[in-house]
């Protein structure tokens, strides 16, 4: 008897249901029930008390995403126009810091920006400062940009590398200036890279709690910190934590749906 190939996936399907689907449903269940298991909307409405933290998270991660896009776009473009044999090496050099542990990269900025850190020390030798840099929202944005910049470069590069050189020649033959070529040829053709880059930076930025904790001090709480505090912190309250997670997921879903509108190929990730 022939064994059908689709049964091969049975072990994974069990795993997927138990460890992906059920845990996500538990977030929904915890968000909408009390300790005794009866239905309530209290936790979801309690999330409203933290509106300022939500606004700060969205705002800071939008700024970081915008900076990443502006900084990464020329980098990705230059990479994609290099000679083929140099592209691989350059791409590796750009992506290499990504392979360092995320915590160590953030820690590096902690020591750089600190009140006794090297930047303030250098400023001191030329008679300036000390400037308070650590524990500000600017430091949080900087940390996000530093950590997630390669997430923006990679998808942009992989789309741009497919744009044929003759496109630019055709555009200039038809009378486009370089600015017009950028606006009417390069940007529309790299749109899938832009949208996936934005999601790949925005999602980790809005949900981080490491960057805000290490570089933002106690005064720059983000959604991630709020969730972490409900599960592992002093404010232990898994119901509220689940409700916040649920709202976070909805925000991300909305953002991704909006991004999809701009994307002709419907491929947000990867």
């Amino acid at each position: 008897m022939k064994m059908k190939l689709k049964y091969f996936s049975a072990p994974y399907l069990v795993w997927m249901i138990v460890f992906i689907l059920v845990p996500l449903l538990m977030i929904g269940y915890f968000a909408l029930t009390t300790d005794s298991g009866s239905f309530t909307l209290k936790h979801v409405s309690d999330v409203g008390q933290y509106a300022n933290i939500f606004v700060r998270s969205i705002w800071l991660s939008l700024i970081a995403t915008a900076i990443c896009l502006v900084v990464a776009y020329p980098v990705a473009f230059m990479l994609s126009r290099m000679e083929k044999h140099r592209q691989g090496t350059m791409l590796m050099i750009v992506m290499l810091p990504m392979w360092m542990n995320f915590l160590l990269r953030t820690y590096a900025w902690m020591t750089l920006l600190g009140n006794n850190g090297i930047i303030n020390h250098l400023l001191g030798t030329i008679g300036l400062g000390p400037v308070k840099m650590i524990n500000t929202s600017g430091a949080v944005v900087l940390g996000m940009v530093y950590n997630y910049l390669p997430f923006m470069i990679l998808p942009l590069y992989s789309v741009m590398v497919k744009i044929d050189k003759s496109m630019f020649e055709a555009a200039s033959d038809l009378g486009c200036s370089s600015a017009e070529t950028l606006w009417r040829v390069v940007i529309p053709l790299s749109m899938p890279g832009i949208t996936s880059g934005i999601t790949m930076v925005f999602v980790p930025a809005i949900s981080t709690f490491i960057i805000s904790r290490m570089l933002g001090g106690g005064s720059n709480l983000l959604i991630g910190d709020l969730i972490e505090m409900q599960f592992l912190g002093n404010a232990y309250n898994p119901h509220l934590g689940a409700a916040i997670s649920l709202v976070l997921m909805v925000i991300i879903l909305v953002i991704m749906t909006v991004m999809n509108q701009f994307d002709p190929d419907d491929q947000v990730l990867m």
């Binding site: 138990v18 996500l24 977030i27 980790p204 809005i206």
Partner: peptide, 15 residues
């Protein structure tokens, strides 16, 4: 992959 890591982490912690 799409969900923030913290949501995956928290959901497994609940389970």
């Amino acid at each position: 992959i799409i969900n923030p890591e913290i949501v995956t982490g928290v959901s497994l912690m609940l389970l």
